Simulated scan of single mutants.
Amino acid sequence: MKKLIITGAANGIGRATVEQAIKDGYFVIAADKDRQGLERLQGVHGREVLETHVADFSDPAVIKGFIPALYERHTTIYGLVNNAGIYHGKSVYAYSDEQIDEILNVNLKALVYLSKDFAEREMKHEAPRAIVNISSVAGEVGSCDALYGATKAAVIGLTKANAWNFAPFVRVNAVSPALIHETAIYDTIPEYRRVEYARQEILKDPILPSGVAEVILLLIGEGFRHMTGKVIPVDNGAYPR
C-alpha cells in the first residue's frame, strides 16, 4: 500500500483528497492544526489506512521538523500533497505583521521545507515519487487579497523550479482551483469576487472539493507519470490562459 502525505487534511479540499486517496488504495498520513477535524476523520477510517498528526504549519519549528519526524516511523513515502493554506480575503493594508508572517509560513515556507525534505529522502530510492502543490487561480490572475495571491503565485514558481530540482525521480505538479464551493474559504471571499468567478465560468456545474481531489489523485498516480512542472486549472473554464 503506497503512503501519501496530505496537509490541511481535516476539511475542504484536504478532507476530500483524504477520502479519494483511501478509496484509491493509499495509506494516508493526514496533517492539520484542526484536532477535532482529524478526530472525525479517524473516526470514519481505521488506523490501517489513516494516520493523523496535529500540525500547525505557521510554526517554523513544525515546518522544519515535520518530515524528519515522519521518517522516524516510515521508511519510504510515495507522495506529498501540499494543501494547507490560509486565505483572509482582505486588503493588504489590513494585514498585521503577525498575519503576514503566518500566511507566508503556511502558504509558502511550509511547501519549501516539506517538499525538499520529502524529495531529499525519496530520491535516494531512485523510484517514481510525486508531489502535488495546491495553488489557486489567484496566483495566476491576481486576488483582492494581495498576500494570498502573492503566495499562490510563488507556489507556481516553486512547482516549476522543483520539477527541475527533484528530477528525474520526483514529479512536481500543481493544481490551480478557482471558486470551490463548500469550503471554509468560500464564505470568506468577498461577494463581488464570487459573482465575478461565477460570471467567468463557462461550465456551470459548481466545483466541489471532491472535484479538485479527483484531479489531485490523477496527478499523483502513474497515469500522469510523464507530467511534471505543470499547473492544472480546475476552474470550469474560467479565465482562459
Rank of each mutant, 00 (worst) to 15 (best):
Y186N: 11
A167Q: 03
E122M: 15
I131Y: 01
G149S: 05
P128D: 14
R129G: 10
G157I: 07
I156E: 01
I189T: 09
N165Y: 04
N133R: 06
A119K: 08
M123Q: 15
I134A: 08
W164H: 01
I134W: 05
G149T: 07
I131G: 08
V141M: 12
K124E: 13
M123L: 14
S135F: 05
R129K: 12
R121E: 14
E120L: 15
L179N: 13
F166S: 01
E191H: 13
I189F: 13
S135Q: 08
V137I: 14
K160S: 00
T183M: 10
I180C: 02
V155L: 01
V155M: 02
G157S: 00
P190Y: 09
A174M: 04
Y148G: 10
P128I: 06
S136G: 11
A146G: 15
F169Y: 14
N165M: 01
V175H: 06
I180V: 08
L179A: 12
C144P: 04
A130V: 08
Y148F: 08
H125A: 15
I189V: 14
N173Y: 06
V141H: 09
E140N: 11
A184R: 15
L158T: 07
E140P: 07
P168M: 02
A146T: 15
I189M: 15
P190E: 11
L158E: 02
F169G: 05
A119T: 14
V141Y: 09
T159W: 00
T151L: 03
G157P: 00
Y192A: 14
E140I: 15
P168Y: 02
E122C: 13
V155I: 07
S135M: 11
G142T: 12
E191L: 14
T159D: 00
G139Q: 09
G149F: 04
I180F: 01
F169S: 12
A174G: 06
F169K: 04
G149Q: 03
G139Y: 01
T188Y: 02
E120R: 14
G142W: 04
G149N: 04
T188M: 09
T151N: 07
I185W: 10
L147D: 06
A138V: 06
I185C: 11
E140L: 15
A167T: 07
R171Q: 05
R171S: 03
I180M: 03
Y192T: 11
E182R: 15
I131M: 04
W164I: 15
T183W: 10
S143V: 12
N162C: 00
A154D: 02
I156R: 03
P168D: 03
T159H: 02
I134D: 05
E140G: 13
E191G: 09
A119V: 10
P190F: 08
V155H: 03
Y148H: 14
N133M: 08
S135T: 13
V170Q: 08
A163T: 01
V137Y: 06
N165W: 05
T188K: 11
R129I: 05
R121C: 11
A163Q: 00
I131T: 10
P177H: 12
A127Y: 12
G157T: 05
A178K: 13
S135Y: 06
P177Q: 12
C144A: 12
V132M: 01
S143E: 07
A161I: 09
D187Q: 12
S136K: 13
Y148W: 06
A138R: 05
